[in-house]
């Protein structure tokens, strides 16, 4: 089995409508993501994107490259403000282990960690 040195970057720019769509998808209507007035009274000062929006961008980037995440261990290292572009990528360390990261506006790491990848269609019950 051959693993590439990098997983091609995948980007989105989540605006307020994207935050609403993600809230509907996950039923996470925390006003910190959606309400500018509420967010202004928090230490963030303005709405922040859902953390797993960045995580799922990484999951999708891996899938589009023809792989799947077998195991993942990440930390959310900084908030993403609504309106910032998110870019997910992965760099191979050795074997199937990758350093994974998501950047906001190309300069702030908002998610970092490690993932072990596998080829798609190699799990149990894949024919079901």
């Amino acid at each position: 089995m051959s693993f590439p040195d990098t997983i091609p970057p995948l980007s989105i720019r989540p605006g307020p409508e994207t935050a609403e769509a993600y809230a509907a998808l996950t039923q996470d209507w925390n006003p910190i993501h959606l309400d500018a007035d509420f967010a202004a009274a928090t230490p963030f000062g303005k709405p922040i994107a859902h953390g797993t929006m960045a995580l799922n961008l990484l999951v999708e980037a891996v899938a589009r490259a023809g792989f799947r995440i077998a195991e993942l261990d990440i930390r959310f290292t900084a908030p993403t403000f609504v309106g910032q572009a998110l870019t997910a990528s992965a760099r191979r360390r050795e074997g199937a282990e990758y350093a994974v990261e998501v950047y906001a506006d190309g300069e702030t790491a908002v998610l970092t960690g490690t993932a072990t990848l596998d080829m798609r269609g190699t799990g149990p019950d894949t024919a079901t």
Partner: peptide
Amino acid sequence: AQKLAFSGAA
């Protein structure tokens, strides 16, 4: 923080 382990099942 978040950990995930996918089985690979479809």
